[in-house]
Amino acid sequence: MSAVRTVLGDIRPGELGVTDAHDHLFFRSPLLPGRELADASAAQAELAAFRAAGGRSIVQWTPYGLGRRAAGLPRLSRAAGVHVVCATGLHQAAHYDEESLAGLRGGLADVFVRELTKGIGPSGVRAGLVKVAGGFHALDAHARWTMGAAAEAHHATGAPVAVHLEMGTGALDVLDLLCGELEVPPHRVILGHLNRSPDSVVQRQAAESGCYLAFDGPSRAHHATDWRMPDAVRALAEGGFGHRLLLGGDTVVSGARSVDGGPGMPYLLRRVRLRLEAELGTDLVHRILTENPGRAFAVDWT
Results as ranks from 00 to 15, higher is better:
Val84Tyr: 10
Val84Ala: 00
Val84Leu: 10
Val84Met: 00
Val85Gly: 01
Val85Ala: 00
Cys86Ile: 10
Ala87Thr: 13
Gly89Lys: 03
Ala93Glu: 09
Ala94Glu: 10
Ala94Lys: 15
His95Glu: 09
Tyr96Cys: 07
Glu98Leu: 14
Leu101Asn: 11
Gly103Thr: 11
Leu104Trp: 07
Leu104Tyr: 01
Leu104Met: 07
Leu104Val: 01
Arg105Cys: 00
Gly106Arg: 02
Gly107Trp: 14
Gly107Glu: 13
Ala109Pro: 12
Val111Asn: 04
Val111Thr: 15
Val113Asn: 04
Glu115Lys: 02
Leu116Trp: 06
Leu116Tyr: 08
Thr117Asn: 12
Lys118Tyr: 04
Lys118Thr: 09
Gly121Glu: 10
Gly124Trp: 03
Arg126Trp: 02
Gly128Arg: 01
Val130Leu: 05
Val130Ile: 14
Gly134Thr: 06
Gly134Cys: 02
Gly135Val: 05
Gly135Lys: 04
Phe136Arg: 15
His137Met: 09
Ala138Met: 15
Ala138Gly: 09
Ala138Val: 10
Asp140Thr: 03
His142Asn: 13
Ala143Lys: 06
Ala143Pro: 07
Gly148Asn: 03
Ala149Val: 00
Ala151Arg: 10
Ala151Met: 13
Glu152Asp: 13
His154Cys: 13
His155Lys: 04
His155Ile: 01
His155Asp: 03
Ala156Gln: 08
Thr157Gly: 04
